[in-house]
């Protein structure tokens, strides 16, 4: 059985907000390592890989690996019934056909209990190969969100150019063009805002802004984001959390 108690229930609410528009149904794979989820969007353009490590929960118990098939829209609706400061406990039996959720307020004088029906999801499990990327950009997650949103005014795609000087996000559309360049600035006072680049080779790739904007729904989960790129390989956008991560993979646009 699974029993996982999360002190900061808001984390789970934010995680659901960050994935529910990309994928509708997914298996939460529970093991002694923690709770993981991996799913592609319907058009096979993007993939979400989520890990909530066991040490992020207190307590965390999972005697036997379990796949909990969840409709993410339903789960996020139920999670809206939890207060932001509530402690959230997830429970499921080995023969689980429901996921039990308990929300306790911080005064421990209001306890709400919900049960969400589970579904059988026959999902193909994909192995994501370890890739050495030609360019890795680490930057402020809020800045990345702003750039994607701003450039969406001009176009539905963005060209990302990475050199050792900096990273340039450019968009061209019917009303004109725009570009935002962030210079590499590792020695700024505010570490949170620094743009850092690890580069093997200059990279220039095109991506759909609609998907990138969707990925930035994870911004409340981490102050930093990393963009890992190589030619003709899916972009990896990673938000690291205290005990886990959300990784998004996005196939590039090809052939200008």
């Amino acid at each position: 059985m699974l029993e996982a108690r999360l002190q900061t229930g808001a984390l789970l609410k934010k995680v659901l907000e960050a994935i529910k528009e990309l994928i509708t149904d997914a298996n939460f794979d529970c093991s002694d390592n923690g709770i993981a989820l991996q799913a592609m969007d319907n058009s096979h353009v993007a993939l979400v890989a989520l890990l909530l490590r066991h040490d992020g929960f207190e307590p965390y118990r999972c005697d036997r690996s379990l796949a909990l098939g969840v409709n993410l829209v339903s789960l996020s609706k139920v999670l809206r019934c939890a207060g932001n400061d509530d402690i959230i406990t997830l429970k499921a039996d080995d023969t689980a056909d429901v996921l039990s959720l308990t929300f306790e307020n911080t005064d421990n004088d209001r306890i709400s209990e919900y049960e969400l029906k589970l579904m059988d999801i026959d999902s193909e499990h994909l192995g994501i190969p370890d890739t050495t990327y030609e360019a890795v950009v680490q930057m402020s997650s809020a800045e990345f969100a702003r750039i994607c949103k701003d450039l969406q005014v001009l176009s539905d795609s963005v060209q990302i150019d990475v050199t050792k000087e900096g990273v340039k996000f450019g968009a061209k559309g019917e009303l004109g063009s725009g570009a935002v360049t962030l210079k590499q600035n590792g020695n700024v006072d505010k570490e949170e805002e620094a743009t850092l680049i690890e580069l093997q080779q200059n990279v220039s790739l095109n991506f759909s802004l609609k998907y990138l904007v969707n990925f930035t729904k994870a911004t409340p989960l981490a102050s930093r984001v990393s963009l890992s790129m190589s030619s003709e390989v899916p972009l990896l956008v990673e938000y690291k959390m205290e005990a886990g991560y959300i990784r998004y993979y996005l196939a590039p646009k090809i052939g200008e």
Binding site: L47, V233, Y249
Partner: peptide, 14 residues
């Protein structure tokens, strides 16, 4: 204009 690529083929089935 560029066409949107797909992820199929990048990741292996396990």
């Amino acid at each position: 204009t560029a066409t949107q690529g797909r992820l199929d083929g990048f990741f292996t089935m396990t």
